[in-house]
Nucleic acid binder design. Structure first.
Ligand SMILES: [Mn+2]
Ligand SMILES: [Mn+2]
Ligand SMILES: [Zn+2]
Ligand SMILES: [Zn+2]
Lengths: 133, 133
DNA sequence: CTTTAAACGATAAAAGTTATTGTTTAAACT
DNA sequence: AGTTTAAACAATAACTTTTATCGTTTAAAG
């Protein structure tokens, strides 16, 4: 009865070896594209179907077990759902990092300027990571 | 020698009737998905090829005549390049609006917290527009 | 243990995007 | 204005990505 098992059950997802491996991979690596996830999964399950990856990403998104992060100049990456946060994206090596930023002031400003009821903020900051500088 | 002609020439794009219509459509409607653009173009050019839309979007992106906006829960939309700005996206009707917000403080904060050299910020605020409330 | 609905792998089908080819045309140059 | 040429065009084939189908396996409940 490990950690990922409980997490999957909490999101009404049946616990399978494939899903446990997806959860672990995303937990360890943070952010992964669909392709990356598929190739990592192939190492553990040499005959896993690509359709299984697609279907699990879908249902995991529906059940908010994971989140999709759309990056400006690259393929989407996926991550385990956690507290809302922004992203740093290195335009040289493609690395993606989390960063906690207080967006309350900005969101409040936006609600005053516009007539929108804002529910969520998606911020991706593009730049060059320490390693690539 | 209209306005869109000059704009296209400024971005090293050969001026064709199709491109003038794309520029006008994006100028008038603000943000359009590839499909929307294709269908609007079909009204003016009943036999325009979908490949022409794809190719023009590509070269216009390359030459920074237009920008792509990736929305969290919807297809990408495209817009004429203008001063950097954030977006409001209505999760009910799909409307997309521009909003000018000063992100300097936030970006400065992010550069201090991380070791990234930040070059651009992409912010999409999801919510409910005035009409849909 | 059974039972059963869900998940799986394999693979076909559909949708989305890019490449190819012959024709047309915008723009440069007489 | 007429000629030339490279780029853009429409048509469509090829390729990639995503989704649907189907027979089999398995997680979870009883
Ligand atoms: Mn993240
Ligand atoms: Mn915009
Ligand atoms: Zn980097
Ligand atoms: Zn709306």
């Amino acid at each position: 009865m490990n950690n990922y098992t409980d997490m999957l059950r909490d999101h009404n997802l049946k616990v399978t070896p494939q899903r446990l491996a997806i959860a672990q991979a995303l937990d360890v690596r943070g952010h992964m594209s669909l392709d990356e996830l598929y190739h990592v999964m192939l190492e553990k399950f040499s005959s896993i179907s690509l359709a299984t990856i697609y279907k699990n990403i879908h249902i995991m998104l529906e059940n908010t077990f994971i989140q999709e992060v759309k990056l400006p100049q690259a393929k989407s990456v996926y991550e385990l759902t956690k507290a809302s946060h922004a992203h740093l994206s290195c335009e040289k090596c493609g690395a993606v990092e989390d960063i906690m930023l207080d967006m309350d002031v900005l969101v409040k400003q936006a609600m005053q300027k516009s007539s929108y009821k804002i529910q969520e903020a998606s911020l991706v900051l593009g730049g060059i990571c320490k390693n690539c500088q």
